[in-house]
């Protein structure tokens, strides 16, 4: 297809000029976009926080922060297993890949369950989107809004992982699919790395 009229530095069509396939590029673009959605929410919550004089700091190191750290640990571990899954699928070891994806799902589900408990616990303490016992009502709004959107992402991710695991097992999904799914999962993890300090660590109770 190379033609004499074609200067050699010109792009030759077909595959991927920047060595990224469609799916991977598409996922990267989605993540850029999604990070802006989270960004707008995070900025809004921080705006509310700086504008309020009575922003509560209700989380004691024990048990709240410890509990949230456990959740963080689950999510981090699942990122690790996801990395193993991608490596395995790259080697062509489909069985190992499936195994690691299942472990990732386990981490995600554990996170969701712990998080649901956390929600129930706070609701029990009287935190509502419109009020809470300690101060600015926007505290609860920020908490539920941000973590809710994040939980939705984790939940979607678990479903997505399930689809990929199934497809990998019966050979319908390629290595690229696993890799792209991994990108999404690491992103969800990364977002939590912003939410955890901004929601929890910055609201550690001074006592």
């Amino acid at each position: 297809m190379m033609n004499s009229g074609l200067a050699s530095e010109n792009w030759n069509g077909g595959g991927s000029p920047y060595a990224v396939g469609h799916k991977k590029l598409g996922m990267w673009l989605f993540l850029v976009s999604d990070s802006l959605t989270f960004g707008s929410l995070l900025i809004s919550c921080m705006y509310a926080r700086t504008a309020s004089s009575n922003w509560p700091t209700p989380f004691p190191m024990w048990p709240s922060i410890a509990f949230a750290s456990l959740m963080t640990f689950c999510l981090l571990t699942s990122s690790l297993t996801m990395a193993f899954a991608v490596a395995a699928s790259k080697r062509g070891d489909r069985a190992a890949a499936v195994k690691f994806i299942l472990l990732t799902i386990l981490g995600g589900v554990a996170f969701l369950v712990l998080h649901a408990r956390e929600w129930l616990h706070l609701i029990d303490e009287g935190v509502r989107p419109w009020s809470n016992p300690w101060g600015s009502p926007l505290f609860g709004a920020s908490f539920f809004g941000l973590t809710g959107l994040h939980m939705f992402h984790v939940f979607s991710g678990v479903v997505y992982l399930g689809v990929i695991a199934l497809g990998t097992r019966n050979g319908k999904r390629s290595h690229e699919d696993v890799e792209v799914c991994g990108l999404y999962w690491h992103f969800v993890d990364l977002v939590w790395m912003f939410i955890f300090p901004l929601i929890y660590l910055m609201s550690v109770s001074p006592k």
């Binding site: 673009l29 850029v32 976009s33 999604d34 802006l36 959605t37 989270f38 960004g39 707008s40 929410l41 809004s44 509310a48 509502r128 989107p129 419109w130 009502p137 926007l138 609860g140 709004a141 539920f144 809004g145 959107l149």
Partner: peptide, 25 residues
């Protein structure tokens, strides 16, 4: 569009929360 629409989406989510969940963003 890829960089602008998500911000409106975020704003829309917050506005819906204000209307439906009683928040005060």
């Amino acid at each position: 569009a890829l960089l602008a629409f998500p911000v409106l989406l975020g704003g829309g989510i917050l506005l819906l929360l204000d209307r439906l969940a009683g928040t005060s963003f």
